[in-house]
Amino acid sequence: MRLWLTLLPVAIAATGIAWWLTAPATVDASQIVALDGDATQGEAVFHASGCASCHHAENAENDTVLSGGQGFASGFGTFYAPNISPHPEAGIGDWSVADFAGAVRLGVSPDGAHLYPAFPYAAYGRMTDQDLVDLWAFMQTLPPDETVNRPHEVGFPFNIRAGLGVWKVLYADRGWVLDVPPELERGRYLVEALGHCGECHTPRNALGALDRSAWMQGAPNPSGSGRIPALTPNSLTWSVEDIAYYLETGFTPDYDSVGGHMAEVVENFSKLPAEDRQAVAAYIKALPAP
């Protein structure tokens, strides 16, 4: 009995720590709500962030109907991209900008649940406030779609979302990966934040977290055969101009053409200003050799 009494405070503390670790965080929305969103600027953020690539319907001709439904296989199960069109019930039409910020930055839904990191919120967490509200403004202009979300097919124990709270504390590091001089900051922002390039080009550990010590060193293709290539200088020998031209047209220096999910990335980057493609290329060329 005495032992039990001694242990009780420990148990309470442990429960408290567990709750604190797994409880979804909330964003301080005061600065975000104060900003005015510009939909025209937001369109560029939308393309740079590649939202449509995952959230448009399978085989959709129209990339701006964000009805969701594409499946993404992983070692933990298959995740289905949700409807993020402005439909009030099926999509995210009844969200506030603060709800949107919570999802994009912290991976927390408006009802307080953790979102799976198939949604690259660790990268998007580096998005500026202004880009976030501009993106939100642009997304309001897209057509609503009534497709109902398909539940993820994720087995035990990964179907317990509270576990994601611990995962986030361990792995959702929002600091920059590389220290860069000022002239490479735009490229770093496009690669590490909006473009979330590391999600595919960087290997993951057993719990699905990016191994930042092997940043951009290539990884197995999460959704099938083959490998996602390394972008580090030991592997990628293209010039800055070669990389920028590839991001614009999809042509490699040998005039082979881009394939797989990267074709969607090129589709997005081709819509950005030429300086942004140059900035991405300059950052890629500055990656350290392993």
Binding site: T249, G250, S257, V258, G259
Partner: peptide, 15 residues
């Protein structure tokens, strides 16, 4: 290039 991508997107496996 857009026409190339349109097919390679879904129908060509990565190397």
């Amino acid at each position: 290039g857009d026409a190339c991508k349109a097919c390679h997107d879904e129908y060509r496996a990565p190397e």
